[in-house]
């Protein structure tokens, strides 16, 4: 009889270890995916000074819009990785969208090769940000399923695993820059 109890106990311990490792794996995946978003955001941040420099040469009258973009970028960089990052990034996306609208009045600039290349890179960065956010949400869903479903929730609550917050599109997401490239 004691052997049976020991066998059940050993089974439970093994199960706990497996679930614990799965939870750790899921949490690490979330952290990794979150870092992936930051990498892509940094890439977008790095492109903006070049964009501002190219635009300034052709559209000197847009100084105010360019300043707004630069300020939004600085704010986004300062809060990168924190909980305010989403709001700051939404602000930056909004500023870029406004800049894009204003640049409609400068067809000469839009035909320039450096500007086209920058905008292509910016579009790529935007899509990669979107992809990494989707990947992050997928990992969060996996983690939350483990934390909230029975019987894994017992182990999760025992070791203090918490429900993760998925990434929701901020107000600026609706104003993401739309690239209109010539020809």
């Amino acid at each position: 009889m004691i052997e049976l109890y020991l066998l059940i106990l050993a089974g439970l311990v093994v199960y706990c270890i497996v679930v614990f490792n799965r939870l750790i794996g899921a949490r690490n995946s979330c952290t990794n995916a979150r870092a992936g978003i930051d990498v892509n955001l940094t890439r977008r941040h790095q492109l903006i000074p070049n964009l501002v420099a190219v635009v300034r040469g052709y559209a000197a009258h847009e100084q105010e819009t360019l300043t707004a973009v630069t300020r939004a970028r600085s704010q986004a960089i300062s809060v990168l990785g924190s909980s305010q990052s989403a709001r700051a990034e939404a602000g930056l996306a909004e500023a870029l969208a406004l800049l894009n609208v204003r640049l409609e009045a400068y067809p000469e600039l839009k035909a320039q090769r450096p500007f086209i290349n920058l905008m292509k890179n910016l579009t790529e960065a935007e899509e990669q940000i979107s992809a990494s956010r989707r990947a992050f949400n997928a990992h969060v869903m996996q983690m939350n399923n483990l934390v909230q479903q029975f019987p894994t929730l017992i182990i999760a609550s025992l070791f203090g695993f918490k429900v993760q917050e998925p990434f929701s599109a901020g107000a600026g997401a609706q104003h993401a820059p739309i690239v209109n490239l010539p020809g």
Binding site: A33, Q128, A131, A135, A138
Partner: peptide
Amino acid sequence: DQSDVRYILS
């Protein structure tokens, strides 16, 4: 790659 696949499959 979980992120790259979402970049391909928008």
